[in-house]
Design a protein around this nucleic acid. Sequence first.
DNA 1: AAAGAATTGGAAAATATATTCTAAATTGTT
DNA 2: AACAATTTAGAATATATTTTCCAATTCTTT
Lengths: 284, 284
Amino acid sequence: MPNSPPDNLELLRSEIASRYDELSPRLKQVASFVLDNPNDIALETLAVNANRCDVQPSTIVRFAKVFGYSGASEMQRLFRDEILAAAPSPSYSERIRQFQERSDTVDWLLPYNVMREFAESNIIALEHLRDAVRKDDLDRSLELMHGAHTIYLAGVRRAFPVAAYLAYSLSHVEKRAFLLDGIAGMTAEQSWMLGPDDLVIAVSFKPYASETMAVVERSSANGAPVIAISDSRLSPIAKDANVCFEIKDAEVRQFRSLTASMCLAQTLVISYAYKFGLDRSAEK
Amino acid sequence: MPNSPPDNLELLRSEIASRYDELSPRLKQVASFVLDNPNDIALETLAVNANRCDVQPSTIVRFAKVFGYSGASEMQRLFRDEILAAAPSPSYSERIRQFQERSDTVDWLLPYNVMREFAESNIIALEHLRDAVRKDDLDRSLELMHGAHTIYLAGVRRAFPVAAYLAYSLSHVEKRAFLLDGIAGMTAEQSWMLGPDDLVIAVSFKPYASETMAVVERSSANGAPVIAISDSRLSPIAKDANVCFEIKDAEVRQFRSLTASMCLAQTLVISYAYKFGLDRSAEK
DNA sequence: AAAGAATTGGAAAATATATTCTAAATTGTT
DNA sequence: AACAATTTAGAATATATTTTCCAATTCTTT
């Protein structure tokens, strides 16, 4: 009946709400189910949804047609897109893609624009981090940190600032922490000494550094637990890790940021300080 | 081959990660797509997912079988259930109520809350940065960077990661850059050598480090231009600086973040690369 | 370099799912 | 209470999607 059906979920929801009264009994059943269980509509088949609201599949099709769609599938598309676009986790890549498309038109020769673009994508990365980090991983990390006599930080090149920050701030909350900095090629030697009493936090991103891989492999073989901060579960350092954080940092035209990784690092240190609050002093 | 397939997403993910190496090339493609885009697997048809990772639909079926499922559909069920479980009963009004409740009292003993809180404040800091940085400061910085034969980075303690990042990424856009790292107490000696052809980018925050102050003073006296990244115009390193960025980083209960500073650092490097685009290679 | 093994692409078959259609049931009207 | 109009159930049909299977290709081994 309506000329053009609502083309986003929010519109559809209010349309359903406002026309609720004119609907027939069965269609009302469908209406309230649809409003209350968007995820079921998105993910389950017509048959099971029909069953859930105690209705025939064909009734749901009729419902969709009443609101102007060609069928239930077309309406379902809206619900699926909502999850893909706005859902907690991995709308991420899609958002980034859209964002980058949009930014194709900005003038990259103006530093001011670069700044704005960069701030924007870092914000997106942080939002993603906030929603995607798993409670459980954080808890387990804190336990590992608490149990460790000393924490060793591994990370070179792009990952180095993160490792350096961890070393610095951990020692400021009075946790013994050393940076495996590989000065004079010492890294290999240094990792010999690590054992079950210690903990390695290894940070490594895409073209994974062999130094960091070696540290993880060796210390893990010696029985030292490992927390990995990396960009993929498939990362070589994720393999042997007891906990692996998968961080999707912002990427703007080839350049990858560290914002999300730094934020995670801060979270680990501060949570640790609060939970086992030996510190008091904290960093100034 | 495996007796019983993983029956929850997390298990499946780690199973995929750990067996990644033994997979054939096409199956690897599928594996990383599956890990990176769980929502697509949950919501899109085999055909479109196959297309997205540039593979035949049948390959995805084979992938699912390798991990013990009867077919792709059975595996997809896991991904769908994950979404359904994440939002148990997201009735609209209920969701809003929960959201409003959330921000009232946060329990800081729960790392998860710390993470959320931290991400939020970093986002705010970035928004501030985006709006507060002066066009003119950026332009002048780029000119100084362009004019310099070599850029030297100064920053210790909390500021060290920022300086390290700048050194790393500048050299990746083919700008000569050295970190004045003060190893073996060399900082003083190193800064003797700086002159009008060089540039110092100094990073320093609240309890200002004397090392960094010394570098700025001495090199500036020798005629080297200085860009300061600091938290106040009154900072000792701002005095002698040609350009001073005043960065208000997030502060959560005593702990200061580096997010905004890192973002500014990235902006400088990337703008430089675009404007004077010597790079081409960039960082990978 | 050839033979065998494993992997892959793609079309055909099977299955699952959505849609249509008609007869039955319900509702409202006189 | 009878009739028309509307709504509904459910089987039949159409469509979409997945799965299977085999030929083509690529990789290994000798």
